[in-house]
């Protein structure tokens, strides 16, 4: 049958930073073509297409079922592929190659991560699954 695209509303203006992104305004309604796990969603607005940060999107209607995974408080081991310094106070600073525990994989690409006794948000795009125990 036909593919039914989900509609989402922009909660804030988003100015694009590269050619492949879509510049949008608060209140715009876009159709989501693809949801990437790293938090960039491929959207369509009229005849324009491009990537938009999922965190800027809210569903028009309540989704029938939650697409979000349940938190895993035991933690899922990952290694950071790139260093990241926290910008907002709820984020975590992690060096490249550090092992962290992913507690909650959120659809907006910002995962809840634990490092030692500290918990905060970290970009999923810089995380790679690890089969190894932390040193």
């Amino acid at each position: 049958g036909p593919i039914v695209l989900q509609s989402y509303r922009l909660i804030a203006d988003y100015e694009k930073n590269s050619k492949s992104e879509l510049g949008v305004k608060a209140g715009d309604v876009v159709d989501v073509v693809e949801k990437n796990e790293n938090g960039w969603w491929f959207c369509q607005l009229k005849n324009k297409r491009g990537w938009v940060p999922a965190a800027y999107l809210e569903p028009l209607d309540s989704p029938d079922e939650s697409e979000e995974q349940e938190p895993n408080y035991a933690g899922d081991l990952h290694i950071s592929t790139k260093a990241y310094s926290a910008i907002m106070e709820d984020e975590l600073t992690v060096e490249e190659g550090e092992t962290v525990e992913v507690i909650h994989k959120l659809l907006d690409g910002w995962w809840v991560v634990r490092k030692g006794s500290i918990t905060g948000y970290f970009p999923a795009i810089y995380l790679q699954k690890s089969g190894q125990a932390p040193p």
Partner: peptide
């Protein structure tokens, strides 16, 4: 065909604009 997504983390919206859930 769909291009590859950007290779940098998606920006987070200003806290006052943040919605409760995706």
């Amino acid at each position: 065909t769909i291009k590859r997504p950007p290779e940098n983390p998606p920006p987070r919206p200003p806290p006052e604009a943040r919605r409760k859930q995706v």
